[in-house]
């Protein structure tokens, strides 16, 4: 029988800012889904951030069981702070405004229905997250 712990080997947990009220949140969600679905589907898992409060022990132990990457849409850094407070210290914490600044990309402006250039930005952010996944798994 394969145990759950065996299945967890080589996985990184992605904790995304949900950011319903800011365009960077939408960008974070889209970029994280790209990593989960397209770029590193076999190496990543996710959990809804608010489940740390609403869920049970399994959710709170998420960052104990998996190395995690938090992706935040703004300086308030809810994903990093909540993960640290309720689950465990993330392996890496990424901030969307810093990624955009590094690449010289403008901030997105739409909450939904991202424009084509904003979807291209999601790809850039997703690739940064994927690189962070690789770095963590190399350790």
């Amino acid at each position: 029988m394969i145990t759950l712990n065996v299945l967890k080997v080589g996985k990184v947990g992605i904790v995304s800012c949900s950011g319903e009220a800011i365009p960077e949140g939408t960008l974070s969600r889209l970029a994280c889904r790209k990593v989960l679905d397209e770029l590193r589907p076999d190496q990543t898992v996710t959990i809804c951030l608010p489940l740390f409060i609403a869920g049970g022990t399994e959710e709170r132990n998420f960052a104990r069981d998996f190395p995690t990457i938090t992706v935040d849409g703004c300086e308030k850094q809810c994903a990093r702070k909540s993960t640290e407070k309720l689950s465990g210290k993330p392996g890496k914490s990424l901030l969307i405004p810093e990624i955009l600044s590094r690449h010289g990309i403008a901030k997105p402006v739409n909450l939904r229905n991202l424009r084509p250039e904003e979807k291209a930005t999601a790809q850039v952010v997703a690739e940064e997250i994927a690189r962070a996944v690789d770095e963590i798994l190399k350790k």
């Binding site: 949900s18 800011i22 951030l49 608010p50 809810c78 702070k81 909540s82 407070k85 309720l86």
Partner: peptide, 12 residues
């Protein structure tokens, strides 16, 4: 209006 749900988790 709305707010980001995780902001409530950090007592914003």
């Amino acid at each position: 209006v709305t707010t980001c749900l995780p902001l409530l988790m950090i007592d914003d």
